[in-house]
Design a protein around this nucleic acid. Structure first.
Lengths: 338, 338
DNA sequence: CCCTGGCACTCTTCGCGTGCGAGTGCCAGA
DNA sequence: TCTGGCACTCGCACGCGAAGAGTGCCAGGG
């Protein structure tokens, strides 16, 4: 078991290393933090911490740097979430408030997050599966051609053009539109299939084929578009990554281009609560030298999507977590308002 | 005036340097290309080329590398466009043929181009200034809250939530919807402002404020929508850039995130014909160490947008130009089909 | 039992001098 | 106008030594 002071030493090491990016030695530690003990004592503690695998030496005559296990302990037990200052919060709110539509909200969020954390930001579009239907619109383009427009409560809009098996009158269309909306408006996507199951029965025989086509297109759209989208930004911050550039940065850029990888990454990260994945805790090996801080955000109490940042394992965890949490909150508010 | 052989020497220098990334000396040149003359002669030619500013020496005892002026001459007079091989062309076509919608076409194009050229690819979405309005939908969310949904003939959908100055009844809403659509459906974006100008006059006094608000939001949306979008990809290829990483790569990443910069860049590049901008020919200084190869593409004879790649000035110009041209052609075909 | 000061030891880093080699410029001759 | 020869310049890799940072260990004191 590690004594209180040893944990304190670990915290000090992490903080210093994150600040300076250089291995930290016992003497420097006692000077920068008043631990109340001598360098020699700190050395003993460091030896113990190294035995436990929380810190390591790059080479024999260098100071210590935290291991992934060390960061893990730091995040779990030693560090809180650093709250944003009032001006920062105001700035966040102001910046997000100007958004005109969902794309804009996501775009602003990603820029904001990248700027606040000085790292790469990733923002997932509100998921369709967890959204509710605000409205379904049907437009007649031609006698046997209908456009289906699906609008979610988070502001996402999807549309499809449907070729009907038979001409479909305006009145039937209006009827279908009304019935459809009365059933699904305000309901969750997941529930839609059951809700519309028996809908064709309410129509004349000659219209049933068209109604069925429209419904199946609707369901199809729900499935297809449930496929998540996301936006990334702040890749220029990758240049602050480290010294051994090409090797570190390349796989990260590759991972960032593989949206599938990122979506899986965000998906794996628990529920809506804040998740920190450090180094090899990330399954995708291109991201083994990075940490990912993510959190769910949503318009109501429940998360509709995730956002987060990707940065070096050596990152300012409390600050990053604070920024991520704050941004998620305000984005949730913005979405709830619209 | 430069003799034929000297141009030949320049071409050889560019080719070798692009291949090896190392300054090329007179001896190596005579060995790798059979110029039919001795190294000493080549040295004289090199001295002349250097006097003219086409090549330079990094340091006294090193070989020569092309200057931007040298690349310019190479591109203008010494190099053709290397055509794609038949298998390559087939691969391009196959890859693009699978696209299901516009987003997919652009996404595939950007990936393809990045892969073919091993550089950063930029693809602009087809310009919307020539688009027409397919339908305008108005939905009542609350007594004084309306959602505007705009659908274009290219399949793009934009929506805005509008807070009305006064409550707006369902019948008024239906009236506005009908009048609006009868005027603007099928018309070009550019014509919409005049078409709706006198629309408020047709309504009761108490509704005019709301109608005006809706219209101004519509016009605003049209303007925003017409603003071009683009997609980039292959940023991981930036790692192949050179040795002095952080300094070179950072401004490029920053430029790539500034879509405005890129749009301007593509916009400046002449009409639809292939344009090559080398180093400082790019106005934006973050891209001063890069070359941009771009070309217009379109479904018919006319270009609707541009695409291209951003790479180091030391790039394989003939190959890159060949790939860019080929991809642009096939994308044009795909768009024409759909 | 834990903390402390001291001390010897280990490595990395940096500066410096040297030799090597690639590449050049110039010149005289064909 | 081209060619071979030759002296010259420099960047770079290498080896060496000094400096410095940091450690581990040990004996002594609270």
């Amino acid at each position: 078991m590690l004594s209180e002071r040893r944990l304190e030493v670990l915290r000090a090491i992490v903080q210093d290393y994150v600040g300076t990016e250089e291995p930290v030695g016992s003497k420097a530690l006692t000077e920068r933090h008043n631990l109340g003990v001598s360098p020699a004592t700190v050395r003993n503690d460091m030896a113990a911490l190294e035995d436990e695998g929380f810190i390591a030496q790059p080479h024999t005559s260098a100071g210590r740097i935290p291991t992934e296990k060390g960061y893990r302990l730091f995040v779990d037990r030693l560090a809180g979430v650093k709250p944003m200052t009032a001006p920062e919060r105001r700035a966040i709110q102001n910046f997000l408030d100007g958004a005109v539509d969902l794309d804009d909200v996501v775009g602003r969020t990603v820029r904001l997050l990248a700027q606040l954390t000085r790292q790469v930001a990733v923002v997932q579009y509100p998921s369709l599966t967890r959204s509710t239907v605000r409205h379904v619109e049907l437009l007649s383009l031609a006698p046997a051609r209908v456009m289906l427009v699906l609008i979610t409560d988070t502001g996402r809009v999807e549309q499809r053009v449907i070729d009907c098996p038979a001409p479909f009158g305006e009145t039937s269309l209006a009827d279908l539109r009304a019935r459809l909306n009365s059933r699904v408006a305000g309901r969750r996507f997941a529930d839609v299939p059951q809700l519309v199951q028996d809908l064709p029965d309410a129509f004349e025989v000659e219209d049933r084929g068209t109604v069925a086509t429209v419904l199946s297109t609707l369901l199809e759209t729900l499935v297809e578009e449930a496929e998540e989208r996301l936006m990334i930004g702040g890749t220029a911050n990758l240049t602050r990554f480290g010294h051994d550039f090409p090797l570190t940065i390349r796989p990260v850029l590759e991972a960032l281009e593989e949206q599938v990888v990122l979506l899986k990454l965000l998906g794996e990260a628990g529920d809506s609560s804040m998740t920190v994945r450090i180094g090899h805790e990330n399954k995708y090996e291109g991201l083994n030298s990075t940490s990912v801080v993510s959190v769910g955000y949503g318009s109501g109490g429940e998360a509709v999507a995730k956002l987060g940042v990707v940065g070096p394992t050596r990152m300012d965890y409390p600050g990053t977590m604070g920024a991520v949490r704050a941004v998620a909150r305000y984005v949730g508010q913005i979405l709830a308002e619209s």
